[in-house]
Amino acid sequence: MIDCLKCRKIGMFLGGVLFGTAGVKLLGSHDAKRFYIKCLAAGLRAKDCAMTAATNIQENAEDVLAEAREINAKRKAEVFEDESGQAASEALMEAASE
């Protein structure tokens, strides 16, 4: 007598082989290849879009940083002039003469 468990194992093995063979045929078909190509093209477009956005953000951040450094340099110069007293009085004299 054939054991039912052995029949089940053999049936599952044959089903797996059949499913694997059909899967390979399906994945290698012309329609599947077109689908893969379209998905890859969409991924590349998304990558280009993300890289463009990242570049724009980086450029804007560099502009903001440059402006912030300018403001800090001007403030530092103003504070230094105020502390020295001489530069501040010279600026007042120049403003008065105009």
Score class of each variant (00 low, 15 high):
Gly28Arg: 05
Gly43His: 04
Met12Ser: 08
Glu62Ser: 05
Glu59Gln: 14
Asp63Ser: 08
Lys33Ala: 13
Glu59Cys: 07
Glu67Gln: 12
Ala61Asp: 02
Leu65Asn: 01
Ala46Glu: 04
Leu40Asp: 07
Thr52Leu: 11
Asp63Cys: 06
Leu18Thr: 08
Asn72Gly: 00
Leu5Asn: 02
Ala46Lys: 09
Lys33His: 11
Asn72Arg: 06
Lys33Thr: 10
Ser84Asp: 15
Glu94Tyr: 06
Gly20Tyr: 08
Ala91Arg: 15
Gln86Thr: 14
Gly85Pro: 00
Leu26Glu: 06
Met1Cys: 09
His30Ile: 08
Lys74Leu: 10
Ile2Tyr: 01
Ser97Tyr: 01
Gly28Trp: 02
Val24Glu: 02
Val64Gln: 04
Lys9Trp: 06
Ile57Glu: 11
Thr52Gln: 12
Arg69Val: 10
Ala54Lys: 12
Glu59Met: 14
His30Val: 12
Val79Ile: 15
Tyr36Gln: 06
Val64Ser: 03
Leu18Pro: 01
Ala41His: 07
Leu5Ala: 09
Ala66Tyr: 02
Glu94Asp: 11
Ile37Glu: 03
Glu81Ser: 15
Leu14His: 04
Asn60Lys: 10
Glu81Cys: 15
Asn72Ser: 08
Gly20Met: 14
Asp82Ser: 15
Thr21His: 00
Ala46His: 01
Glu70Tyr: 10
Ala96Ile: 15
Ala68Gln: 01
Ile57Gly: 03
Gln58Pro: 01
Leu40Tyr: 11
Ile71Lys: 10
Ala32Asn: 05
Cys49Asp: 10
Glu81Thr: 14
Leu26Lys: 10
Ala42Phe: 10
Tyr36Ser: 03
Ala73Ile: 14
Leu18Tyr: 02
Asn60Glu: 07
Met1Tyr: 07
Glu81Ile: 14
Leu27Ala: 13
Cys39Lys: 15
Asp82Trp: 15
Glu70Asn: 13
Glu62Lys: 12
Leu18His: 02
Leu14Tyr: 05
Phe19Asp: 00
Lys74Val: 11
Asp31Gln: 08
Ala50Lys: 07
Ala96Arg: 13
Ile2Val: 05
Gly23Trp: 06
Gly15Pro: 00
Glu70His: 08
Ala73Ser: 14
Tyr36Val: 10
Leu14Asp: 04
Ser84Pro: 00
Arg34Ala: 09
Thr21Gly: 03
Ala73Trp: 07
Gly11Gln: 06
Ala53Tyr: 03
Leu14Cys: 08
Arg8Leu: 12
Leu92Tyr: 13
Ala96Lys: 13
Ala68Tyr: 01
Lys76Gln: 11
Glu78Ser: 09
Ser97Thr: 06
Asp63His: 08
Arg69Thr: 07
Phe19Asn: 04
Cys4Ser: 08
Cys39Pro: 01
Met1Asn: 02
Phe35Gln: 13
